[in-house]
Structure formats: structure tokens, C-alpha cells
């Protein structure tokens, strides 16, 4: 298999995973036909609550798309432990980064993730997520298993890794059809850091986040 073909396959894999992750974030519905007997735990409730907030934003057409996306970003910031995900994603480069680089990276990573996925907000098209079950994973985490039913196409199986308890619960990874968002993002960042270093990665993340969206303004 040629190198170019391998790269092409990898790109397609990343793209599909990222799209699926965006879809999963966007469709967290609380109308969720959950099975209370099997998914009545704290983590399931947390995922459902997050979904309820997300759908509230999605359906609120009294606000502009930009305002809805801004609100969606707030939900992501509160629902996901972006610092923990950011450290995991930077992998071994986290250890070699100095304090300033770490602080700048975490800020840039958080902004990049929320900008990237909130921009997919408008892609919502009536998908419904059902909480199927939850199970403990190691000492710290709970995996909430969900199924996303779509108007077209087969359902997507998604797992939400939740850490913490009560008000401190946060999602630390989303696994879609067996593919981890955090692991996928880590592979992408590794190649960027190899080429441009940690400072280069921060610049690139900032540049991605600071682009402007569509406008009605004349200039």
C-alpha cells in the first residue's frame, strides 16, 4: 500500500470520526427515550441534562445562529473537562511544555474545541439519542452508552466517558462506533507538534478559533 494511500485513508478516518463526534454533540436529546430501569444512574442523568440544555439552544429560533452557537459553546465548556482532555491529547509533549506553554495551550485547546464543534450546530436534523445503559469503567469513570437514531442512515452507537460526581461531573471523552475523539485528536496534534512545536500548535489552534463566521455586515 502506498504512503499516499495510507495518508488518505487516515484522513478519511479522522474526518469521519470528527463528523460523528460533532453529530453526537449536536443530537444529545433529552426527549431521550431512556430506559430508566437500566440507565437511572447519576452519569446518565448528567448526560441527559446536558442534552436537554443543548436541545433548548438548538430549538430556540428567537436568537441568531451566532447567539445559539455562543450558548452551545457555554454548554460544552461546562459539560466537558476540556483541560483534562487537552492534557491527554497533547500526550508526552505535555511533560516537555513549560508553565506558560501549558496555560496557553489549554486556553487555545478549549477555544478550538468549542469553536469547532459549535460551528456544526446548524447540522442538527432531527436525530434522537437514547440512553441505553451505564457501567463503571475503572475507579474514576462511568461510561454512558447511547444510541443515536437518525432520519436517514443506521443508528450510531456512542459512549460518553464521565468523570466526577454531582456538580463536578464532566465528560472526558466521546467514543463513537469504537473510535475515541480524544485519541483521534491526539494523533492529529502529534503530527502538528512534530512539524511546528508546541508554540506552533498553539498558534494554529488560535488561528482556527479566531476566524470569523458568516455575516450580514457590509464590511
Amino acid at each position: 500500500m502506498s504512503c499516499r494511500h495510507k495518508i488518505g485513508q487516515r484522513r478519511m478516518f479522522y474526518r469521519r470520526t470528527i463528523l460523528a463526534f460533532g453529530l453526537a454533540l449536536i443530537v444529545m436529546l433529552p426527549t431521550v427515550c431512556s430506559n430508566p430501569a437500566r440507565a437511572s444512574g447519576e452519569a446518565s442523568s448528567f448526560v441527559q441534562e446536558l442534552g436537554s440544555q443543548a436541545i433548548g439552544v438548538l430549538q430556540d429560533d428567537s436568537h441568531t445562529l451566532e447567539q445559539r452557537e455562543a450558548r452551545f459553546r457555554e454548554i460544552l465548556v461546562k459539560g466537558f473537562d476540556l483541560d483534562l482532555i487537552g492534557r491527554f491529547v497533547l500526550a508526552r509533549y505535555w511533560k516537555s511544555a513549560d508553565d506558560d506553554q501549558r496555560a496557553n495551550y489549554l486556553r487555545a485547546f478549549g477555544e478550538f474545541i468549542v469553536h469547532k464543534y459549535s460551528a456544526m450546530l446548524g447540522g442538527y436534523s432531527g436525530e434522537v439519542m437514547t440512553v441505553v445503559s451505564e457501567q463503571r469503567s475503572g475507579d474514576k469513570d462511568v461510561l454512558v452508552h447511547t444510541r443515536i437514531d437518525r432520519p436517514s442512515g443506521p443508528p450510531i452507537v456512542t459512549h460518553w466517558r464521565v468523570r466526577g460526581s454531582g456538580d463536578e461531573q464532566r465528560i472526558i471523552d466521546v467514543v463513537i462506533e469504537g473510535i475515541s475523539m480524544a485519541v483521534t485528536q491526539r494523533a492529529e496534534f502529534k503530527s502538528v507538534v512534530k512539524r511546528h512545536g508546541i508554540d506552533g500548535l498553539i498558534q494554529i489552534l488560535d488561528a482556527q478559533s479566531n476566524k470569523l463566521s458568516a455575516t450580514a455586515a457590509a464590511n
Partner: peptide, 20 residues
Amino acid sequence: YARAQHNLAHALISGGGAER
């Protein structure tokens, strides 16, 4: 168009869609 100049600059910084 200033907004386009702004986004083009950011694409050139990130290398997304253009050579960095």
C-alpha cells in the same frame, strides 16, 4: 473586504486550506 482579509490571514497562519 476586511473580513475576508482577516480570515485569509488566519488560514495562512494555521495552514488550513493554504500553505502556512
